[in-house]
């Protein structure tokens, strides 16, 4: 039986905006060469966040960085365990010698990021790859660590964390 009370909003609206602002501030403060930076969202969860970060970096530094998206479906370490529709990786430019900022909403096992790096490298050899996440919920299964984190929270394995940023009503909930 599904207990509806299990859905619990952890952060909403202003709280979420604050976490995003803090994350963007850390990124802006870091000594990136912004003219060489590409902001890459991991589909689907990282898309809205990477667009927001792109916007905030532009406001904060004046640099209109290139942006792209990676779809990791074909790079999963369990290709066929979860049947997903293949979506597009959108990287319509040369990434050789570029600095890449990978962006995702939640980091958990770290496997998604591993797959995303694998996908990126098929497009060339970036100079560096850094990782920004909105929520680090712990529970890593492979040695991957974000460089920029919005918020660290401990959430038991039995829950999923859902981040909604695309609509006006932003929230982060555990399900």
């Amino acid at each position: 039986m599904i207990d509806k009370k299990l859905n619990e909003i952890i952060f909403k609206n202003d709280e979420v905006n604050k976490i995003i602002d803090d994350l963007a501030a850390k990124i802006i403060k870091f000594k990136f060469n912004f003219s060489n930076l590409i902001i890459v969202g991991i589909k689907e969860g990282g898309v809205a966040l990477s667009d927001l970060i792109h916007k905030k970096v532009k406001e904060g530094t004046g640099f209109d960085c290139l942006s792209g998206y990676v779809d990791i479906t074909l790079y999963r370490d369990d290709s066929f365990a979860v049947k997903k529709t293949v979506k597009s990786t959108e990287m319509p430019f040369n990434i050789n010698d570029k600095d890449i900022l990978l962006v995702d909403d939640v980091i958990y096992s770290g496997r998604t990021v591993r797959a995303a790096i694998d996908d990126l490298i098929c497009f060339g050899r970036p100079k560096s790859v850094k990782l920004a996440v909105l929520i680090d919920r712990g529970g890593r299964e492979i040695p991957i660590c974000p460089d920029f984190t919005g918020k660290k929270i401990k959430i038991p394995n039995k829950y999923d964390v859902k981040v909604e940023l695309a609509s006006k009503n932003k929230f982060i909930e555990k399900i």
Binding site: L74, Y75, R76, S79, D118, I121, C122, F123, G124
Partner: peptide
């Protein structure tokens, strides 16, 4: 792509 290969069917 430059690298025309994905690891899906390893």
């Amino acid at each position: 792509q430059d690298i025309k290969k994905v690891p899906t069917m390893r």
